[in-house]
Write a protein that binds this DNA or RNA. Sequence first.
DNA 1: CTTCATATACCTAATTCTAGGTATACGATT
DNA 2: AATCGTATACCTAGAATTAGGTATATGAAG
Lengths: 208, 208
Amino acid sequence: MEIKLIIIDDHKLFVDGLIAVLNNEIGIKVIGSGNNGSELFKLLEKGMRPDIVLLDINMPILDGVSTTKLLTKNYPKIKVLALSMHELSIDVTEMLDAGAKGYITKDIETNELITAIHAIKKGEQYFSENLPKDIKKWFYKEHSTKPYLTRREKEILNLLANGRTSLQMAEKLKLSRYTIDTHRKNIHKKLGIKTNTGLVNYIFKNIE
Amino acid sequence: MEIKLIIIDDHKLFVDGLIAVLNNEIGIKVIGSGNNGSELFKLLEKGMRPDIVLLDINMPILDGVSTTKLLTKNYPKIKVLALSMHELSIDVTEMLDAGAKGYITKDIETNELITAIHAIKKGEQYFSENLPKDIKKWFYKEHSTKPYLTRREKEILNLLANGRTSLQMAEKLKLSRYTIDTHRKNIHKKLGIKTNTGLVNYIFKNIE
DNA sequence: CTTCATATACCTAATTCTAGGTATACGATT
DNA sequence: AATCGTATACCTAGAATTAGGTATATGAAG
């Protein structure tokens, strides 16, 4: 029985390459592909039913996280294997919380990808071997809580992205600087990001 | 006469995929591959002589820019086609100044890549069609004049936008933390921005 | 009632950042 | 030769940030 795959990635070159490689593998068949989450749902609406979707995180129109959430909700039998350039804990967190069953980075060997696909098919979770152990450990620990940002946290993130200091935010929101710092501390903890510049990066890449 | 290619990219999956695709193309043959600049030079030292090197920008050990410079200097007949995730002007500038003959992003179609390879072989320059016109225009305009921000300053800004601390940047660039701080100070002064978060904001709004 | 999530606030201490200043080295230009 | 731009490096000191901890108040839910 072949494992049926759909590959979704905004880099067509990458998609073409993966299709070429995976269709040479016994037991695996790529039945479809697309460049963003919307295209995936179009395929599914036509009745296409893969076992696993290889899904890139950063995509236009409908990104990896949103796609995964919708997929997990509407097509719970289809498993998501997340693909990313980086081992960033932000990315891992978001994709796995959205329902992905595995996470691999694009610099793994082809045979590791095959291993991952088979593991996911068997119902296991799979993390690429180059993913730091502490990230995997952190995930298991954090998996029962949603890293959801509160209204106030988002408000503070927005001001941060506009280059404001805690003191400036405190003045604007009529709060203590300590309150701002506490919210910031909570944000760092929830998102697993250690620097304020990393937070701004996160905002631009995830919210905009 | 086949166009001989070497593909250098730290993402093995991508390399494998590209090899599979390109070896199916009439007139093109991938004669070698590697995951960083050093591996390329090892192949060249063994006597391998490609027409074109498809070269990723971001790589460990010896990155795209350095590789291109050495290649252009020591093997002037071999042409570089730069590969990147992004249309960042920093990347374009650096690679083209280093001697690359073309610049493409990884989200182009396979057939556009084939077009690019043939153009480069013919001695033309090639920019992927999805590269914003203003970047290409900017390149021609800027190629004879000095950029306001120096090469090093842009490099540091880019690392900052990825959430790196001065210490991390110093480690990455093999410099003193003091040197990084001096460049940062100069950047703040030139751009009139007082916070690092403000700088990241500037980068995302003005460069990407 | 208790529990939980969120908001507000504070303290401590280490790290990082910013901004002022200093300096030398090197290559290119005049 | 001098000058300039860039890169590299350092020092000082204050401001800002991060990360550990503490606490109370309020509203909603069980």
